[in-house]
Each structure stands twice: as structure tokens, then as C-alpha cells.
Design a protein around this nucleic acid. Structure first.
Length: 515
RNA sequence: GGCCCUGUAGCUCAAUUGGCAGAGCAGUUGACUCUUAAUCAAUUGGUUGUAGGUUCGAGUCCUACCAGGGUCACCA
């Protein structure tokens, strides 16, 4: 009697076959999901230890005994001898299974195909090299560790003499890959590689800031007042406190309060949540890093940015020169620093300072064939020009500096006019990677900015940054002059792993509910 | 949310003008004691995303819905 699932699972033919095998294994007294496991070597260790012994003395190498574990990725049944490749996180190793070595009873499990590709097994034996030259385990003891009921997508691999691997068959349906990331990872080694690289990137970033004397901190994700960026929040509710809470859209305001508290340099790496559209570079939750450093300004922050990116690239890829989607990109400092005004002048041949009101600027954009929503604030129109004409050209790392004041409520004004603030964004491969300011620390000015934002967005459905009374209270105690900075970690990972979509650097990208 | 594209066997894909839904891989059965995309022989497998409609007849045409991708809007 086959196991009947009470879930939604309706086994297909292949799965029913495997369920029958499971039954037969149990009838033979074999536990398909045993508790105890042993392993002396990873696949990579077994192979490399054998090769090392072999290089020293061919005779003693044959005495290397190993117990390896892994998932069966290939079975080649050849009568009274069989081959398998098993794979663990370190790689693959071949098992050579012979009826003489294993005995009839165990060998029959393999011959009668009660053991399938995708099962986890444990194999003990001596290391040897086959006639065809592959380092293998000549197996004396073979155990099932975990039965696979649903076959993974089949991918066959041919390893060429020069080491290149050609894959035959693929698991490429993006929806399935994202919904069943476990299957994607199990089958696509290069996908697994991306997330190893992601972890390395995060370690390198932390190392950099730790070495620079920054303190890593953690601040609230559930916030009574959200702020620090222009985005719509997710709203949630605390039942017992009967309190609505927002999932943070940035860390900015909580981190800057810490400078009031006496820390000179802090950073945080964590998740932000923005209730907005989803695209190849936007996910509703994403990983952000922000830092705030006292006694510097946005120019000092630019220096840190250049050094950070060069350091991380070097640590993770071995070079400051990377390739992204076919573009050679050099991350070594210094990067060009250009004002937004000059950048737009160059590319769009419009000097927006000739049009210092929203009405005038909107008209000139329309006259030049651009289409913009009516009633946008002046700064947003400037940004529109930038995104239209400049952004697509910014392949090499570039600082764009001095942003319109009315869309930058936390940045200090420049000294040369009233329209701009000391803010920069940096672009690589046409992607905005991050955003930074000489942080505003005048509580009177900050209060006015909050009020201006509220006025500016009153007529639109945009949620303006709400006025944060506690933040102003903190600032009134005195906040040291400081430079602040934020960068999207996911985009950095995209850049350094040459992935085109943010979904490919998130293990579980957001998808609609499956029906 | 608007527009465009896509959805066929476990996976990757075919199917002419609307005319019997097919292949490779894997699976199943058999052969093989050094294979490695193993090979050879035979063979199973489908509510063509869902629900309607047009038609003698729909994978194909129409409508709605679901999901994914792209793009615009929103947004860093």
C-alpha cells in the first residue's frame, strides 16, 4: 500500500515509481531515512588527498580509506559493475561499485534500481583511479541516507579534457527556479556559486568598515514613524499595544541619532522594505548598508566609497577590473565627479538653471519631446532629465553630485546657491548603486525641510517623509557634522557576480502567491 | 496599475493553413565487471495554465481569469 499524502501533492508517474521503491526498501528492512550518518571526507578532500598521496608514492595511495556522503547525480549501471557520481557542497566524486566488493544483497539494491539519482547515500571504501583515469572510491560499504521521491530536473554534464563542462539539458524556467529555489540550487551549480559569492561580498564589506573603525549596529525594523527616504512603506500592527507600525524604508534617522549619542562612525547592514513596483532591480525587501561618519562631508564619503568598492572587488574577484554584462568596468579610484547640472548640460544640452521654476522646466522638457507627469516638483523634473539623458550613459563608476534641494530633505545646502544640496549618488553600469549626503545637522533647517516636503507632496498621492519629532529632539542636543551614505547590497552583488536581475542574487525573490 | 510577449510529458523544446499532440533527455523492462552526455534493444508517460466561446473539428482563432517575463508608470 503506497503512502498517501494528505497534502496537495499528487504524485506523477515518476514519483509513484519512487514511492514503490520506498516500500520495497522498507520491506527489505532498509531504513530510507536513517538517523545516524558518518563521514570522514568531503568529495573534494577524498580526491585531493588521494592525488597528493599518489604524487608522493603511488603504492600507499591505494590504502586511503574514506567515507563520503552526498547526493547521487549520475548512475551508470553496467551489469555487475556500476558507477555513480555523488555530490556534496565541495564537488563530486565517483563511486565504483562492484558485486564482488559489496556482496549480492547490497549490489542488488543498485542493480534493481531501488537507489535512484537524487538519493543521498553514504559510501565507504578505498580510493583508487579507474582505468579511464578518474579518481574514485572503490566502495565496500554502501548505505542509503535519504530517499528522494521527486526527481530533480535532469542535467547531464560532459567534462572536456581542458576541464570545461558542457551541460546537456537544463532547468531554466525562471518561475520554477524562483519558486523552487531548492531545486534550482540542487541542480545549477553556478546558482549556488552566486550565493557563496554574495556571502563573500558581505564579509568583505564588513571587514572594510570594521578596519575603518566603524561600529556595526542594529536599529528597529518596526518603526512608529518611517523616514529617511522617499518611498511608500508596508504597514503592520502590534496587537497587544494596539499600535500601527511601519516596516522601515531606510535606517537613516535611527543611525544619525547615534551620532548625537556619541559614536563617531556607525554602519548597519540589513533589510529595507518598500511598498512599490517590482523590477529587475527592485524587490519589495532588499538589503541595504548605510553608514554615518562624524567630522567629514560628502567629499570624504566619496573617498570612502571608491576605496570600499575597489577593496571589495579585489577581495572577491581578485581584481578591481570587472566585467558586467559584457562591459569592462574599472573600479579603482579615482572616479569622475561631476555635478548633476554639468552632467545634464553635457548630455541633454539643457541648463536647468535657466528654468528655475517647475512650470518653466516642465515646459522645456515637453518642448524637447519629453513626457512628464504634470505638477511634479522642480527637483523631480531635474531628476527626470538626469534619468532620461545621463543615467543610461554611466557605465564606468561615476559620482553625480549636488542634487536639487527640494528632493533632498536630509542634505546640507551647498555654499554657492539655494537650489542645490551636498548630495551625491554613484552609478555603475547605469545602475544607481548608492546615495549620500553631507548630513543636515541644523535642527531649525531640518524642521523646515520636513514642513517643505509635506507641502510639496500635499497634492500628490506620494507619501512624503513624515515629520519625525523625536529625530528633531535628538538633533537639538547637537549633532556633529557628518557624512552619510547608503548602498544597495543586492545591486553590488549583481555587479560583482555579473547577474542581470536582482532576483538572481536573492535566494527567495518576491513572487505572487502560487495557486 | 497600462501595454507587449510567454504558458504543450518530470526537464528542454517541436507541432505547416484550424485537421489523428511529437522528439531528445529521465523513467520502466532487458543485455553488459573500468563507465563517464556510457552504449544497444524494447517501452510507459498529455484535461496543451484555468474557465468559457466560435467551428463539423481548437495546442492553434476570440473573451475573461491565473502565473511568469519585458516595458511604462510608481520608485533609488
Amino acid at each position: 500500500m503506497l503512502y498517501r499524502s494528505n497534502s496537495m501533492w499528487q504524485p506523477n508517474q515518476l514519483e509513484q515509481d519512487r514511492l514503490s521503491k520506498l516500500e520495497r526498501l522498507e520491506q527489505l528492512g532498509i531504513e530510507p531515512y536513517p538517523r545516524r550518518v558518518e563521514r570522514t571526507h568531503t568529495a573534494a578532500q577524498a580526491v585531493s588527498e588521494y592525488e597528493a598521496l599518489e604524487a608522493r608514492d603511488g603504492e600507499t595511495a591505494e590504502s586511503l580509506e574514506v567515507t563520503v556522503c552526498g547526493r547521487i547525480r549520475r548512475v551508470n549501471l553496467k551489469g555487475k559493475i556500476s558507477f555513480m557520481h555523488i555530490e556534496d557542497e565541495t564537488g563530486r566524486v565517483q563511486l565504483l561499485l562492484r558485486v564482488n566488493e559489496l556482496g549480492e544483497a547490497t549490489y542488488d539494491l543498485i542493480k534493481e534500481k531501488l537507489i535512484d539519482t537524487d538519493d543521498f547515500v553514504q559510501a565507504s571504501g578505498t580510493m583508487m583511479r579507474t582505468k579511464a583515469g578518474e579518481v574514485s572510491v572503490l566502495v565496500q560499504d554502501f548505505r542509503l541516507l535519504s530517499k528522494s521521491l521527486s526527481p530533480l530536473p535532469v542535467i547531464k554534464q560532459q567534462v572536456k579534457d581542458d576541464g570545461t563542462v558542457i551541460e546537456y539539458g537544463e532547468f531554466s524556467d525562471v518561475e520554477q527556479r524562483y519558486r523552487q529555489r531548492y531545486a534550482d540550487l540542487a541542480v545549477n551549480r553556478d546558482v549556488r556559486e552566486v550565493f557563496v559569492r554574495r556571502a563573500e561580498i558581505l564579509r568583505a564589506v564588513r571587514r572594510f568598515f570594521d578596519q575603518e573603525g566603524f561600529l556595526e549596529v542594529e536599529t528597529p525594523i518596526l518603526q512608529p514613524v518611517y523616514g529617511g527616504a522617499a518611498a511608500r512603506p508596508f504597514i503592520t500592527h502590534h496587537n497587544q499595544l494596539k499600535q500601527d507600525l511601519f516596516l522601515r524604508i531606510s535606517f537613516e534617522l535611527y543611525l544619525k541619532r547615534l551620532l548625537v549619542g556619541g559614536y563617531d562612525a556607525v554602519y548597519e547592514i540589513g533589510r529595507d522594505f518598500r511598498n512599490e513596483g517590482v523590477s529587475f532591480k527592485h524587490n519589495p525587501e532588499f538589503t541595504m548598508i548605510e553608514f554615518y561618519k562624524a567630522y567629514t562631508d560628502y567629499r570624504g564619503v566619496m573617498d570612502i566609497t571608491e576605496r570600499l568598492l575597489a577593496y571589495v572587488a579585489k577581495e572577491v574577484t581578485g581584481s578591481t577590473k570587472i566585467t558586467y554584462q559584457g562591459h569592462e568596468i574599472e573600479l579603482a579610484p579615482p572616479w569622475p565627479r561631476i555635478t548633476m547640472r554639468d552632467a545634464i548640460k553635457q548630455r541633454a544640452e539643457i541648463d536647468y538653471m535657466d528654468y528655475p521654476t517647475a512650470e518653466a522646466l516642465e515646459k522645456v522638457i515637453r518642448d524637447n519631446g519629453g513626457s512628464v507627469a504634470p505638477g511634479l516638483p522642480w527637483g523631480k523634473l531635474v531628476n527626470h532629465l538626469f534619468e532620461e539623458y545621463v543615467e543610461p550613459t554611466l557605465i564606468q563608476p561615476t559620482f553625480i553630485m549636488d542634487y536639487p534641494r527640494d528632493i533632498s530633505p536630509f542634505a546640507k545646502k551647498v555654499d554657492y546657491d539655494d537650489f542645490h544640496v551636498e548630495r551625491f549618488e554613484f552609478y555603475i553600469a547605469t545602475m544607481e548603486m548608492g546615495n549620500a549626503f553631507t548630513e543636515l545637522n541644523d535642527p531649525r533647517d531640518q524642521e523646515q525641510r520636513f514642513l517643505d516636503m509635506a507641502k510639496l507632496y500635499r497634492d500628490t498621492d506620494d507619501d512624503a517623509t513624515p515629520l519625525d519629532e523625536d529625530y528633531l529632539r535628538a538633533m537639538r542636543y547637537g549633532m556633529p557634522p557628518n557624512g552619510g551614505w547608503g548602498m544597495g547590497i543586492d545591486r553590488l552583488v549583481m555587479l560583482l557576480t555579473d547577474q542581470r536581475s536582482i532576483r538572481d542574487v536573492l535566494l527567495y525573490p518576491h513572487l505572487r502567491e502560487e495557486k
